[in-house]
Design a binder for these strands. Structure first.
Length: 365
DNA sequence: CAATCGTGGGG
DNA sequence: TCCCCAAGATT
């Protein structure tokens, strides 16, 4: 397929698409979402952060819980960080949560609780990039900034038959310009919403071309190339890792600590962790426990050593081994808290760790 | 700029 | 089971 069948998105072809899109939006777009039509910039911002690289169905409940817990930006800014992370738990990409808290505090303290209205000021907020700034500016203020997300890449690549890779600089530039040139004056809000809804419900990865208002005018459909667009050039390499957790329990308390920066799951909690280049047996882990922490066989009883797990992240494949030890006395473990079992529900955990704790202590918390 | 950052659903 | 990828941002 030629790289671009269309280079000027403000041509007659592009104008036909925009007109059809807005008509489809007004007559056939039925996609209810809790944040749709929202005019409060705080809630729009909240929804957009939650939805970054996240399916609508997954983010839906999180949005409702966040709005219920923090109806205003001031309440979010005043919340204990850990309670916000707990609410975010399971949603992934936890830097979003850290930036969410920081931005709520900046808006509260530096903007007097009033959400900024200028695109450049919105873009300067932590965790807000070009997509999110355009979404907030258009949905809240109808400002003329076209959103460019996965839906838009897919729709425009097919409509115009553009095979420029969406993960290339040239491709991003083409689609950004096309999306912006298609935006009808004064209708940024409806256009952006319609474009994403259309991509999500009709021009899906596996498209419903039979139901598409633009079928006869779509370059990809005319060439039977819907399945080849959009083009993505690179594949992310997956790193394999081996996590050996040792859960130390003393009476009704667990040794837990928050993960630090520079790795996955920053600010989430976990038990004592050994990481190795390969899977280790129980004896090797207990030996490391002795060598690195001075914890000897007479210090513990083995409660369980059978649990295993596997979690595939977008860029890592992590193998888990779980070892649960009971300690006769509480040891000094720098950096760790001894958390009572009836408090562990207040702590945010990585998915697999939380599932293991829940399975281990079903009935406590 | 290329790599990094989670989780879940669908084909 | 494996691969794709989803309302991306940051460094």
């Amino acid at each position: 397929m030629k790289e671009t069948l269309e280079t000027r998105a403000d041509s007659a072809h592009g104008r036909r698409f925009t007109a059809g899109l807005l008509h489809w939006n007004a007559t056939a777009n039925d996609r209810p979402m809790p944040w749709k039509g929202e005019t409060d910039p705080y809630r729009i911002w909240l929804s957009e952060i939650i939805l970054q690289q996240t399916r609508v169905e997954q983010g839906w409940g999180y949005y409702e819980r966040f709005v219920a817990a923090f109806p205003t930006v001031q309440e979010l800014a005043a919340a204990p960080e850990q309670s916000v992370f707990k609410l975010w738990e399971g949603l992934g990409y936890y830097s979003r949560c850290r930036n969410l808290i920081a931005t709520a505090r900046i808006i509260t303290e530096q903007y007097g609780g009033v959400f900024p209205q200028q695109y450049d000021d919105i873009l300067a907020l932590k965790g807000v990039g070009p997509y999110t700034a355009a979404a907030i500016a258009s949905f809240a203020y109808n400002a003329p900034y076209a959103v460019l997300d996965g839906n838009v890449f897919r729709v425009l690549s097919r409509i115009f038959g553009c095979a420029l890779p969406i993960d290339s600089t040239e491709g991003r530039k083409f689609f950004a310009q096309a999306a912006q040139e298609l935006l009808p004056v004064g209708e940024a809000r409806a256009y952006n919403q319609a474009l994403m809804d259309f991509g999500a419900t009709v021009c899906k990865p596996l498209p419903a071309c039979a139901a598409c208002f633009f079928q006869h005018d779509c370059a990809a459909f005319r060439h039977g190339r819907q399945g080849e667009l959009p083009v993505k050039a690179k594949k992310t390499a997956v790193r394999e890792r081996f996590f050996q957790y040792v859960l130390l329990q003393h009476e009704n308390t667990l040794a837990l600590h928050p993960r630090g920066p520079g790795d996955v799951w920053e600010s989430l909690w976990e038990p004592l962790l050994f990481e190795a280049g390969r899977e280790r047996d129980k004896e090797a882990i207990l030996r490391a426990l002795n060598e690195e922490y001075g914890i000897r066989k007479e210090d513990y009883t083995i409660e369980s050593a059978a649990a295993k797990g596997r979690q595939r992240l977008s860029h890592q494949l992590i193998h888990f081994n779980f070892l649960h030890l009971g300690l006769a006395r509480r040891l000094e473990l720098p950096g760790f808290d001894w958390v009572p079992l009836d408090k562990i529900d207040d702590y945010p955990f990585p998915k697999t760790v939380g599932a293991w704790l829940k399975a281990t202590f079903a009935g406590f918390g």
